[in-house]
Design a binder for these strands. Structure first.
Length: 809
RNA sequence: GCCGCUGUGGCGGAAUUGGCAGACGCACUUGACUCAAAAUCAAGCGGUGAACAACCGUGCCGGUUCGAGUCCGGCCAGCGGCACCA
């Protein structure tokens, strides 16, 4: 009698064994495969079953690649700068480095329990000076290339985190991290010129094997649009106002013009009668937060008293100010065509401005317009020499025509803004810049990097726009690296995204103190083949990383310009709300966190791994349900029995066993390749049941079929597979095998099951020879349903190996 | 408001190019084993029905087809992204 499945003994045995005998070895000959997880923030709460999902998926994929003969690069590290550690420091007075170190140890222990084959020699930590030396180095390079620059302007400011934020960090007008409404604050900022890469960031999306959803989010975020800039002279003044429009075809319909309140001409356009109203409006707008601006559905505005001249037809149009026009997009001024734009229509209605239709809808002019006609479809009307043209054609040609007429030019615009890169907080990389009264901004010389983050007495953010570093006088005061004069250090720090924008490059050469990554290792091991993580970084980390990689490509550090060839977003694991039953994000405050530790103890890591996959499609969110784990545990027990009880039976493979074996290889491989990991597990369950059944009938299962099943199982449940492999009589690791291949011939059946239908409804399922001709199949079908035919057969259909259908009248 | 995704039993979810809807698992019911329970094994498990007959059934309405969860048109609901980007 065989021994029962004892997950605890088996798992601790093999975990120890693998530590001493690593299964992933680089013999220098194998091709590489780089499978990367988004590295975690080492939170004090540790990991819950939701984090595990991504790690299990990547581990399974990694082990599969290993079995396919690749040398696997599968590293892990820590994105350890950031607010939680700093907030914890503020509360307890403990240095963030200390709490971070403790958290890293705990999470590392948890990660080791899923038996992940991370290569800990490659480990990186963004807060390690040997790492952030290179984060700073990249910044210095960007500065030298003119990509990092200083600017003072009203930025997004989180009053709770007391720091400035990038556009990407503002979600629905609130801080991405803490949910506080974001306000505007005029601050001197370091910026990264990501907009210079807008076109490449957009175009190169085509090369990526990424989920369409993420690509779309990025391309929407970059927001490229084609149109024209048109110059409107101001009546009675020297100045002209340039507007940006994507609808130059509607130029004849422009009945007014709106400037953002921040536009440089806004105040100047006021006349004595309007001066007070205009100044009030500009002041009120400046006080509004993002949220206020967004929530005001009702349009507001003020007439300046000035008029502009439509350069195309000489029409005199009033110039208004309104905060629905954004100062930092296009030119900060628009021409308004109320007949063909929803916002302009609403504004015109409210302030009683004329509406001129210039595109005929369904061939005619609309009387008493109640809404704007925004499509570029129809014939031009009321448009002088453009009358009769097709709007769709004109929309494309107008920019060139306008350029020829000398009243404007063809142009493109992007929604993407430059990246606000400085933070007024302590726990981040110091920006390596010295402000010299004579030389201006001077980068810290590369050989002096890293510029270490000094210890500070108070971590508390000041809220004044200054970083806590500004209080450390002997750090702030320094000599200019160029002229030696007394100078001051930049005291802002970098955002958390700085380290994560390039960390994946460092893993493959993490101990190199001469270069960010050696040319040799970069060529050999980069870029990342498969990147696995949550979708929440679609326009943050993933966009920033692409930008950094392109920059490093441009300065010759790496010779590829996209970091992640393939991307997979795993869904969240949610808890269930006890009252409503609805899926809710696992969080400490809701008290619905499921810790993997208890489950590993009671059912084992292999069971948890399988359950994480079995719970649902990996790309979708799923709800954690404790009772389901029993099912996979029972399955593993059956699988254990199947192998252990049949090892010594010495049965020869029957045709049926061969068929199951090869179908199993085929099915599992195909489902794994298409990332349908939940159905891989259900497939294993089915094949195991089939084999158990077969073993009962035939008195055993041939050894090669058992071995094949164990190898297939290895990426999913490594411990039990390794143990069974040993029991099968091998001294080598199960991971020393090659992934099995299937044989089409062996999968073929002599007889096949075919449903027979009448009028598309299945009446009976019959068995016919696989090679039956159409006539033979139909004949068999006719016989099978003869007694159910009540009318005339008007049509007979046989789709080979699929279906027989008789159409009866 | 615009864009995208998703709607299948009590629950999680299966279903190549249109071809037996509900695989696999959870929960539940019954039986075997047991003094009893647990574990295990066997059977059942969308609805109406006595039925292994028949009919109905993949969010709703309509269409294409011999045949629709799958394709097309029109809605509804939920989730996600963007949010005055001219």
């Amino acid at each position: 009698m065989s021994v029962p499945y004892n997950h605890r003994a088996i798992e601790s045995k093999w975990r120890k064994h693998w530590e001493e005998h690593p299964v992933n070895v680089n013999d220098g000959k194998k091709p590489k495969y780089y499978c990367l997880d988004m590295f975690p923030y080492p939170s004090g709460n540790g990991l819950h079953v939701g984090h595990w999902r991504g790690y299990v998926i990547s581990d399974v994929w990694s082990r599969y690649k290993m079995l396919q003969g690749y040398y696997l690069i599968h590293p892990m590290g820590w994105d350890a700068f950031g607010l939680p550690a700093e907030n914890y420091a503020i509360k307890t007075g403990q240095h963030p480095a200390i709490s971070t170190k403790k958290n890293v140890e705990n999470i590392k222990r948890q990660i080791n329990e899923i038996a992940s084959i991370y290569d800990w020699d490659m480990e990186v930590n963004t807060t390690d000076p040997d790492f952030y030396k290179w984060t700073q180095w990249i910044f210095v390079k960007m500065f030298k290339e003119g990509l990092a620059y200083e600017k003072e302007f009203p930025i997004n400011w989180c009053p709770s985190c007391k720091t400035g934020l990038a556009n990407e960090e503002v979600v629905n007008g609130v801080c991405e991290r803490c949910g506080t409404a974001v306000t505007k604050k005029n601050l001197r900022q370091w910026m990264l010129r990501i907009t210079k890469y807008a076109d490449r960031l957009l175009n190169d999306l085509d090369k990526l094997d990424w989920p369409e959803k993420v690509k779309k989010m990025q391309s929407d975020w970059i927001g490229k649009s084609y149109g024209a800039e048109v110059d409107f002279p101001v009546e009675g003044r020297e100045e002209k106002i340039t507007v940006y429009t994507t609808r130059p075809d509607t130029l004849h319909g422009a009945t007014f013009m709106v400037l953002a309140p921040e536009h440089k001409l806004a105040a100047k356009l006021a006349v004595p009668e309007t001066r007070e109203a205009v100044e009030n409006y500009i002041f009120e707008s400046s006080m509004k937060s993002n949220v206020d601006r967004m929530q005001d559905k009702e349009k507001t505005g003020v007439f300046t008293g000035s008029y502009a001249i439509n350069p195309l037809n000489g029409a005199k149009v009033p110039i208004w100010l309104s905060d629905y026009v954004l100062a930092d997009y296009g030119t900060g001024a628009i021409m308004c065509v109320p007949a063909h734009d929803d916002r302009d229509f609403a504004f015109a209605k409210k302030f009683d401005i004329p509406i001129i239709q210039v595109i005929a809808k369904d061939g005619k002019e609309i009387e008493n317009m109640t809404e704007a006609y925004t499509e570029a479809a129809g014939t031009m009307i009321n448009s002088g020499e453009w009358n009769g043209m097709e709007s769709a054609v004109l929309k494309k040609e107008a920019p060139m025509m306008i350029e020829k007429m000398g009243i404007g030019k063809k142009t493109v615009n992007f929604k993407l803004r430059d990246w606000v890169f400085s933070r007024q907080r302590y726990w981040g990389e110091p920006i390596p810049i010295v402000h010299c009264p004579k030389c201006g901004n001077v980068p810290v010389p590369e050989e002096e990097l890293p510029l270490r983050l000094p210890d500070v007495e108070s971590y508390e953010p000041t809220g004044t726009g200054e970083s806590p570093l500004a209080a450390i006088e002997d750090w702030v005061n320094c000599k200019c690296p160029v002229c030696g004069a007394d100078a001051k250090r930049e005291t802002n720090t970098m955002p958390q995204w700085a380290g994560s924008s390039w960390y994946f490059l460092r893993y493959v050469d993490s101990h190199n103190d001469k270069e960010l990554v050696s040319k040799e290792k970069a060529d050999k091991y980069l870029p990342v083949d498969m990147y696995i993580g949550g979708v929440e970084h679609a326009v943050l980390h993933l966009l920033y990383s692409r930008f950094y990689t392109k920059f490093l490509y441009d300065i010759g550090v790496v010779d590829f310009d996209e970091p992640f060839k393939k991307l997979f977003n795993q869904g969240m694991v949610c808890g269930r709300d006890k009252e409503t039953g609805a899926a809710t994000k696992m969080s400490k405050s809701l008290g619905n966190i499921v810790s993997p530790d208890d489950i590993v103890r009671d059912y084992g890591c292999d069971s948890l791994r399988l359950y994480e996959l079995f719970i649902g499609p990996p790309e979708l969110d799923s709800i954690w349900d404790d009772s389901g784990i029993e099912g996979v545990y029972r399955f593993l027990t059956r699988f254990w029995k199947l192998v252990t009880e049949n090892i010594d039976k010495n049965v020869a493979a029957t045709k049926e066993m061969l068929k199951v074996r090869h179908t199993m290889v085929h099915t599992i491989t195909q489902r794994l390749e298409s990332f349908s990991l939940n159905t891989v597990i259900s497939g294993f369950m089915e094949f195991t049941n089939k084999l158990l059944d077969l073993a009962k009938r035939e008195g055993g299962i041939d050894k090669e079929t058992l071995e094949t099943a164990v190898i297939l199982m290895a990426p999913f449940a490594p411990h039990i597979s390794e143990e069974l492999w040993e029991q099968l009589g091998y001294e080598t690791s199960v991971f020393d095998n090659q992934w099995p291949e299937h044989d089409e011939e062996a999968m073929k059946d002599d007889e096949i099951q075919v449903p027979v239908q009448i009028n598309g409804k299945t009446k009976v399922v019959i068995s016919i020879p696989a090679e039956a001709t159409k006539e033979q199949a139909l004949e068999a079908g006719r016989k099978a349903i003869a007694d159910r035919i009540t009318g005339n057969i008007v049509k007979e259909i046989y789709v080979p190996k699929k279906i027989i259908n008789f159409v009866q009248k």
